[in-house]
Nucleic acid binder design. Structure first.
Lengths: 189, 189, 189, 189
DNA sequence: CATGAATGAGAGTTCATTCAT
DNA sequence: GATGAATGAACTCTCATTCAT
């Protein structure tokens, strides 16, 4: 019945994801997780032995589910503009429901654990965006911008919005404004 | 005697600022502050009765010290480009020494306390930047950009870098790239 | 099938004997026994329902395996000196490999459970030694010592060495010295 | 008011000594010590942070209080027989009130912590007894026994009785018998 | 007033023991 | 029967907070 154990595990991740999303990483306790899952102390501990472990499992799930695959899209022959639009829309949507986002928790986790995982995630994102921009330039769809510069602006301006939107009522159109700015800097005409 | 009390207070803020900078807001305890200040439990409590209070005093000090005053500069007749350069340089310098920055702590504090102070700080920054950009446009120094859009990009891309640079070794020139991007979007020629 | 149950039982005793020998009685948990035997919780519990039960089964096995039977030897007509030598050698050998000895565990068990079994074991040993010494005196092989006194010295000096040798690197010849002392006190010439 | 802290410390040692004497080392918990002392969790922890620490402080106290000093007596010019009698009487008395003895606890502690302290204690005892016996031989009061052999018998037979008397109702005269045996082996006439 | 000993709430962790499968 | 997931009691340990000195 390995299945049962696996199911409980998934259930714990599900429920604690909500917790981490609300309270960040540092303020979640094993007791909290017991409460939201309805598990007993010992029950929870037989699956994970610290909030850190739970969170790492969660991180793994997130990064493996991965997301929109820019490289895949390039292979499929989608145009750079299409891919750009799709990518920016995905980010914007995510920002628009901050209650589901783990960004604070990821941030706190990273600070408390100097995690390499986070660095890796960031590098991967950088690479993807670089590829897309180069692809757009090659295709004649994008202006001949400084690629690294553009990637930095994209990544960090979204990070900034994403993070602050969780703790401040950010005007709805802020994300749209940033999206527009990026598009204007990139797309020809 | 009031003087002595005031001095101790300042001393506590000084020392705990380092702590908050290292560990963020949530992980600092009153005990920690006792230890770094060398004060007794009772001694510390006679000045502040929670880490929150200490942190709020710190916030107040920071926001009152305030910084470079854009409005002041406009009145002085400085050119928009000069003010822009000075402002961007100040931000970049701050990002370059993340060990002194309270950004994580401010962030954690804000999340845990849904503070209005943070919202206010943000609004003030928005207003300042709006003013500067409008001033530049009026003076014919800046391109006729969409002001709100530009302000969003500026504020959040820097926030993004500022925060992640505390937990990740961010390439030194990332901040420069963002600075350049902003200048290119704004300054004519 | 009863056979299988019996075999598992033996296997559990075997494995947990090692554990008790290393860690004493009080520090061994049912979980430990599960681990060394590879049995599941429920599996183990269907044989024994506490470490105490396991240990008592172990004790029983030890005392029934019994050892060198002094009375038997007397009947066989062995000389008192021969029996003495054999008995002392057996004890000394046991002391020389403390890693196999359950003496600590027995001691801890006895203290925690005020067991009558231990008292009985001790009485039997006393009786055996009394018989042997009286036999030796009757045979004219042993000096006319005070029997009870001699038995006490024999039993407790060995107990002392046995126990401390488990926790201290006792000089190898300590056991030999005690053996010699006893022989000198007993054997004529 | 360092005095107050010191007093509480002493009080804790006092009370926990009783506990260790009853239950040995392994079964005493910090909670138990809280209960017998009437201290709160935090209160106790500000003095000692584990049962091990408490026990070590206790050990230190015991070994420094030290005991009857054989060397001192030799210097004073007491006869070897007098010193022997006094020493054996002290041990016998101690054995007669097992409820006050820490021997089980020391033993369990030593087994769980491979303590060097215990080894040292034992060495010191060995040295003292060796000195006394040599002194007695020099003075012509003691028979020319094998010193090391005699020391082993003395130390370990008493250890054996001391330990088992805590867990078994040992006949009152066992200790006397051993004492007599030792005297007979040593004292001339 | 300052000090630091003491309190007590609450988080972490481990196991004996049970019980649905 | 055997299995191992889950329960819950009992410990360990850490701090915010109080209060006698």
């Amino acid at each position: 019945m390995n299945n049962k154990k696996e199911k409980t595990r998934e259930y714990i991740l599900e429920k604690s994801s909500q917790l981490f999303s609300e309270k960040g990483f540092k303020e979640v306790t094993m007791k909290d997780i017991c409460e939201v899952t309805g598990l007993s102390r010992g029950g929870l501990y037989s699956h994970f032995s610290s909030t850190r472990e739970v969170f790492e499992a969660l991180l793994e799930r997130i990064t493996s589910e991965d997301e929109f695959d820019i490289e895949e899209e390039i292979k499929k022959g989608s145009s750079a503009v299409e891919i750009l639009n799709a990518s920016l829309t995905r980010i914007r949507k995510e920002i628009e429901k901050p209650e589901e986002s783990l960004s604070i928790a990821i941030y706190e986790y990273a600070q408390a654990n100097d995690s390499k995982e986070i660095v890796r995630l960031n590098q991967r994102a950088e690479e993807k965006w670089s590829k897309l921009i180069r692809y757009g330039i090659e295709q004649g769809e994008f202006k001949k911008v400084n690629v690294n510069e553009m990637v930095s602006v994209i990544l960090y301006s979204y990070q900034g919005v994403r993070m602050w939107s969780k703790i401040m009522p950010i005007k709805k159109n802020t994300a749209i404004q940033i999206t527009n700015n990026i598009k204007n800097q990139l797309i020809i005409k």
